[in-house]
Design a protein around this nucleic acid. Structure first.
Lengths: 260, 260
DNA sequence: AAACCGCATTCATTTATACGAATGATTTCT
DNA sequence: AGAAATCATTCGTATAAATGAATGCGGTTT
């Protein structure tokens, strides 16, 4: 069936941009073809065009495609449309500077978390997430931080197709999820303890605009570094960031993340 | 001749994204078709796909396409690759807050200025530029701020195909351009007095990383508001922003805007 | 030095997309 | 209230792009 919302040429371009956006050290054409599932000959003219428009550039030594100034220009445009993104990004950088772990921001999209921004740390963690990608909200700290605003009825709507699981610790029943969300409401933050990935822990707080959660930020770290001391420090940073961001958001017109 | 660097499907997607990126109040499908030169039926499936991926969203009341969270995610990726962009953007916002006029940032690309970021002001100016677009460097304040680093020989290389002109005040000879660049070096800022557009004036300063200019920021305003007092105020803001940005850039690894 | 690997690039054919005209739905003007 | 304008959407056909196999190129191994 020719579904007009699955226009292949457009999908190809977006996939390339997204894949490249979260590959700081770049990707070769072959690697990109393998990653996206499109043939090299299909991608070739696309890459040439993106190069000509400077959305990407070729690493001078190795033949790898990197994010370029054209793409950065889009980022500039995005910030013009969403000035709060830049401010939140600064707070995320402060968090990363404070704890040395990667910080991410996400918004809720149906039953998924859409990863919207990321600030890398020196000590890298292998993450399943990447900017532009989606992961089930019930398996992520970001997701649970945002799902905590909903009652049982709303959750049933959202997860009408069931709760996907990644590891054996993932909440795959509504009852389990609801118990964890109650915990989130009580503590003021959400946690993902190896629910998405066996070796990764995440802590997240929701960011509210005039009481309404609009996004969430999280810190991810490998389980072997997630001792009590580190967690305390990270939570302190997240709470401080939340306070500053919310003060800023309350002064802005309403952010709209309407579903349709 | 089928030039692989002018792949139409890719161009269409980029044009749509760029056009929409610099339209804060959104565009209808028809307006977008008129703007980009593609037919509505061509754009239709592209828009549907961008909608499905949340790159754009439909304004609930009016049927206009707006920049969406998916696009914002790309912006997040761009900022992850270019953290300095967010910092510069903050300085640009400070400039706009100080003078109430639009502030833009650009990088040099051959003989053109590529507009990389923009912070809008309440009092809008009709600008020829928009984020992602290119304009001849010799006709813009941003361009001249950055061209001032080059000697005669390098300028001859860059403008081997001649100097394009927009108004009768545009510098269309190398001699004229060079005299103006000398002025830029002397004063420490560049000016475009109705050289791009009959009713617009721009002031720009180059941003240097360890002495090497990497980008420039400018303020644009209509000629009827460009009195001596306003100019003084704007230059003060630009100089202050430059100082803070350069202090920040000097602490970062080298920015790469390689041509190829 | 010859054979090999990983890479970008080209080519002919199949296949999917783009276009302009026509339709239907909604809003704006008189 | 009626007419005109504006908008999204669909359709058949002309056209442009996608595909996988084949080619060419630089560096590395046998």
């Amino acid at each position: 069936m020719p579904d007009s919302s699955r226009h292949q040429p457009t999908i190809r371009v977006l996939d390339v941009l997204e894949r490249l956006a979260s590959a700081p050290q770049g990707l070769s054409l072959t690697a990109l073809a393998a990653d996206t599932g499109f043939s090299k000959s299909t991608l070739f003219p696309i890459m040439k065009t993106l190069l000509a428009r400077r959305y990407i550039r070729l690493a001078p030594d190795t033949l790898r495609y990197l994010w370029g100034v054209g793409g950065i220009a889009l980022a500039g445009a995005g910030m013009a449309a969403a000035p709060w993104l830049s401010a939140i990004n600064d707070e995320m950088r402060a968090v990363v500077q404070g704890c040395g772990e990667v910080c991410q921001m996400g918004v809720l999209e149906g039953r998924d978390i859409l990863y919207v921004a990321k600030v890398e740390a020196k000590r890298q963690v292998r993450l399943l997430s990447q900017v532009g990608k989606r992961l089930p909200a019930n398996c992520t700290a970001l997701g649970k931080a945002l799902l905590a605003q909903f009652d049982r009825a709303r959750l049933e709507e959202i997860f009408a197709d069931g709760l996907p699981g990644f590891t054996e610790r993932s909440s795959v029943t509504l009852d389990d999820l609801e118990a964890r969300l109650e915990e989130v409401r009580r503590l003021g933050y959400a946690e993902d303890d190896r629910e998405l990935h066996e070796e990764t822990v995440c802590l997240a707080v929701a960011l509210r605009q005039r009481g309404r959660p609009v996004a969430a930020i999280s810190v991810s770290l490998p389980v072997f570094r997630a001792n009590g001391e580190a967690r305390e420090a990270i939570l302190g940073l997240l709470f401080a960031a939340r306070e500053r961001v919310e003060a800023m958001l309350d002064g802005l017109p309403e952010l709209n993340f309407a579903e349709d």
